[in-house]
């Protein structure tokens, strides 16, 4: 029963995906395209800033970049 429900839910989800109309049209994305809205406007600076924190804190990851480099002790 659970399996059938899961299959039904999956089909509903997928069919919904197929019908999704973009509710923000391409011509309405002027503000979103503004460079000030970029999450990573200065990649060389962002990478350095992440490195500064990652080298001094226990937490790591999920920073939106590929990661890597050193965690200087």
């Amino acid at each position: 029963m659970k399996k059938r429900l899961a299959v039904l839910a999956s089909i509903l989800c997928l069919s919904a995906c197929g019908n999704i109309e973009p509710w923000v049209k391409p011509y309405e994305r002027e503000a979103l395209a503004d460079p000030i809205m970029s999450f990573d406007a200065n990649p060389v600076s962002t990478a350095y800033t992440h490195h500064v924190f990652e080298a001094r804190e226990g937490a790591r990851g999920a920073l939106g970049s590929a990661g890597g480099g050193c965690g200087c002790n």
């Binding site: 923000v24 503000a31 979103l32 809205m37 990851g61 920073l63 939106g64 990661g67």
Partner: peptide, 13 residues
């Protein structure tokens, strides 16, 4: 929305 963008990220290391 026309003014709001979000990101969700998950990383396992």
């Amino acid at each position: 929305t026309k003014s709001l963008i979000t990101t969700l990220g998950l990383e396992v290391i």
